Amino acid sequence: MDKERLLAIDDLLAQGPRPPLLPPPDERRRLREIWGITIEEVASALGQEPDAMAEWEAGRITAGPADTYAYLRLLSGMRERMPLAYEPDWAALRPPSPSAVHASHISNGLANKESVLVGVKAAHRGAAWTAEAREYLRERFLAGDDIAQLAQALGRSEKSLRWQLWHLNLAPRPASDACPSALAPEPPSPKAYTVEEKRKNHPNAYVRWTPEDEARLADRCAEGASLDELSGEFGRNLGAIASRLIKIGAAGRALEEAENYGG
């Protein structure tokens, strides 16, 4: 082998391994959702912040070779172990039909349902979701109640319910409800950016939240601050503020905006 080719080979080896090619963003999200895990669980496994992991999954930021190889290993493992045709056993998830229950028992059940609503219906627009309200939503959704009925019963918007169902792993992410026309052109892929570029507009982007930050965020939300105002005050983008408000169960005007954000 001549000297020129040896030098070229040595040069490639000296550069080290390049980051592998990850699946497209839609495939990354599809694998995670079918596997039944949350973005927070993926972030924890890969040692990332949930907000940063969401941006990475969407293809809007990149990572170094070591992190990318770890992410590829997770995605490949899910794809290899996934059944060829995955479909939940919906019949097993739903309780017995009311028609199989005695009429007097149904009557008592309806009365109990009305009394339960007193404890789970939102006291005002933008009120924080309680554990009881989430459990009621889960049970009634699996029992077959539609979104419109549940929204009226719980005093919430339909969009707010869809976000909660997504967090409960019972429905797809609200933004994926609307499918673009098959004739519409594919939107251009979002430009990838680095964390440093993101911090030019949002100084605290992907910085870990502290308990003090979360407490101050909840207080400002309760005082009536808007999502835009909180974004400016905390130096984070709207998506990061919205997801954190929902996670900590804040109450106030900004929470309603957070539940509708991106829908």
Score class of each variant (00 low, 15 high):
N169S: 12
W166A: 10
G36S: 06
Y193W: 00
L21G: 05
K113D: 15
I37N: 01
H105V: 14
E214Y: 03
L255M: 02
W163E: 07
A92C: 02
E57R: 01
E223K: 11
W129G: 07
P83Q: 10
Y206E: 03
R244D: 07
R173N: 10
W209I: 00
Q149M: 10
Q48H: 12
M82C: 08
L74M: 11
A215D: 08
G144Q: 15
R125C: 09
G16M: 02
G252V: 04
L93H: 11
T210V: 03
E33F: 05
E186N: 02
P180M: 04
R156N: 10
E233N: 08
P50T: 01
L21M: 09
G235P: 06
E57M: 06
V195T: 09
A222K: 14
T62R: 01
M82F: 04
K3G: 05
L7K: 11
A91Q: 09
A182I: 07
L110F: 11
W166I: 00
V118T: 14
D177Y: 12
R5V: 08
L238M: 14
L168Q: 14
K198H: 05
K200W: 01
L245R: 06
R30Q: 05
L165E: 03
Y71W: 04
E49F: 03
R28K: 08
L72R: 07
L75G: 04
A92K: 06
P19Q: 01
A192K: 13
A127C: 12
K159M: 13
L183K: 13
I246R: 14
L165H: 03
A123F: 04
G252P: 03
R5L: 08
L255R: 08
V120I: 06
R208P: 06
R18Y: 00
T38S: 15
T38W: 01
T38G: 09
G16W: 02
E132H: 12
T210C: 04
S160M: 05
S176L: 13
I248V: 13
A52Q: 13
G249A: 08
E256V: 01
D146L: 02
Y69F: 13
A225M: 08
P20I: 00
D146C: 04
A123I: 09
H167R: 13
L110T: 15
E256D: 10
L93G: 07
W129C: 00
S181H: 09
L255Q: 06
R216H: 09
L137T: 06
C179Y: 13
N108E: 15
T68E: 04
D145E: 14
R60W: 00
L93W: 15
P96A: 09
G155L: 01
T62S: 03
R94K: 07
D177W: 10
S107Q: 15
A100L: 14
R134W: 10
W56T: 14
G263Y: 12
